[in-house]
């Protein structure tokens, strides 16, 4: 058991929950998206903390690869959401 794992893992849980709260409650789309992205970041922190094995030890590379994949998936989804919002604003102004 390592202190660093605990510190980063637990704050990851906290950040994920904070992000989720905003994603559910905030009225503004941009804040919601930031909330969803921070929820993801919190989960990623948990994964990277789990991968850590101590200062002199090589970490577990598998969670690193998973997080890399997760980051790209998250940015794809954010981009699509922003494009939908842009279209929506345009539609509502045209109406």
């Amino acid at each position: 058991m390592l202190t660093a794992q605990w510190l980063y893992g637990m704050s990851g849980c906290l950040i994920a929950a904070l992000g989720l709260r905003t994603a559910l409650l905030h009225a503004c789309l941009l804040h919601r998206l930031i909330g969803i992205n921070l929820t993801g970041a919190g989960v990623f922190m948990v994964l990277i903390a789990v991968a850590y094995r101590g200062a002199g030890m090589p970490p577990d590379p598998v969670p690193h690869a998973l997080v890399l994949t997760g980051i790209v998936v998250a940015v794809s989804a954010t981009a699509l959401a922003l494009a939908l919002a842009r279209r929506l604003t345009a539609e509502q102004i045209n109406d």
């Binding site: 948990v46 998973l66 997760g70 989804a77 699509l80 939908l84």
Partner: peptide, 20 residues
């Protein structure tokens, strides 16, 4: 999309725990 993303994030959180 937003609902789906939240769903996937919760799923991923569970997966991370299992891996841990």
């Amino acid at each position: 999309l937003l609902v789906g993303l939240l769903g996937s994030m919760l799923f991923l959180a569970g997966v991370s725990l299992i891996y841990a």
